[in-house]
Design a protein around this nucleic acid. Structure first.
Lengths: 217, 217
DNA sequence: AATAATTTTTAGTTTTGTCTAAATTTATTT
DNA sequence: AAATAAATTTAGACAAAACTAAAAATTATT
């Protein structure tokens, strides 16, 4: 698989997780920052290689082969992210672009050794699950903080939006993976929340709360 | 710089170390496994970018800019090799091809962090020097084992040929970087050597001896 | 010094992945 | 159900990096 083919497969995989039906040409073009016509060309090529099921005008889905390939790319991406944060002291908002490059290094042996070296982590620095060498994923049941009722206590598990600006916001307010949060109050007008974290009470908007994954404790 | 441009610059750099005059089109084609016409095309492009000094039929040399770029690629290559061997337990004959890919990852910050993480190594697993972040190289004065006189003792510093087959030969005979070797006898007919290593006396051919760098102790 | 051999360059193609613009199909709205 | 809008595909073109074959320049040989 070429660099470009891998990027398409990965994007189709990510879109499939959100909407499990056929994926639109335009949706892919949006994610990959290319034009719909370029996407059509690539989909034909991927279909020839039996990585996707493609029928004109009907969108695409990944084949078994394509799904496995996608998981292996995601595995590499997330393991490299763990490496960068744990071993090289990068922050969680810096690692994505670097991992986008590193995920294309072609060596199963390398990635399995890296996995072992890192102690077989189950999640990346943003709380996203890391597929094992067979593509198996541990599904953690998680909710959005915005769905939690007042007086409940939760643990922070991950982020839905992993843009640097959001991650920097979280750092600034000392919200990290594993942080304990208590929902003190919910404002019915704008759905903002008062939360207790590290013994400090802060106010966060609904937009923040609906991008933070948590689980009840 | 593209992946391909980086490979050309690197090859020109390596050839420059052996013959410091202008580098032939054909020599480059040989190393890069391409055709002379492809090389000519690329040399023009590199000259436009002021990475090489190129005049038709006269061969090329690296400009200051090109030399620095080449050293940074070599730096990445060798640091990744150290990482693979020291941290992920790869053997010294396995790492070259992987490092060929990893050397193209574009991030100064990453490579400087990796350098620090590895303890600022001065040499890669084959004994080749690693340029520092400014391109500075520590020159170790080394000789070929084939040039050493009988009864002299030396330390193994590196290899000239780093092909997997040669490295595997060395492993089999327990010759590693840092090994102490005593030249017992030299056969004048075929220039083979009797050497003492790890308290065992073995016979090695001139071809082996003239691919091993050592220094007197 | 003239000719032969070698090396290098030029000219013209090919492949991969992209694009624009036009045509076609599907979806939406009146 | 027809008309309009939106999404998708086709057709044709382009840039990067490679190639083949032929031409030009350099080097070696007689």
């Amino acid at each position: 698989m070429t660099y470009s083919e891998e990027n398409y497969i990965k994007v189709i995989y990510h879109l499939s997780l959100v909407s499990p039906k056929g994926i639109n040409t335009n949706a892919i073009a949006g994610m990959i920052e290319s034009k719909a016509s370029s996407v059509t060309d690539m989909l034909k090529k991927l279909a020839d290689k039996e990585l996707v099921n493609y029928q004109k005008y009907q969108g695409v889905t990944l084949t078994q082969k394509g799904l496995h390939a996608a998981k292996m790319i995601v595995r590499k991406h997330r393991l490299w992210e763990v490496f960068l944060v744990e071993k090289l002291d990068f922050t969680w908002d810096e690692v994505h672009d670097l991992a986008e490059e590193l995920e294309h290094i072609k060596s199963e042996k390398l990635i399995n050794r890296l996995d072992e070296y890192l102690g077989f982590p189950k999640e990346d620095p943003h709380g996203d699950p890391i597929p094992d060498r067979y593509g198996q994923l541990v599904k953690v049941d998680k909710q959005l903080l915005s769905e939690i009722l007042p007086s409940k206590k939760v643990i922070c598990l991950g982020v839905k939006d992993s843009s640097p600006s959001f991650l920097k916001y979280l750092d600034k307010h000392q919200i990290a993976l594993g942080s304990e949060i208590e929902v003190v109050n919910k404002e019915s007008f704008d759905h903002s929340l008062s939360i207790l974290i590290n013994n400090r009470q802060i106010l966060i908007s609904n937009k923040i709360a609906s991008n933070l994954y948590v689980k009840l404790i």
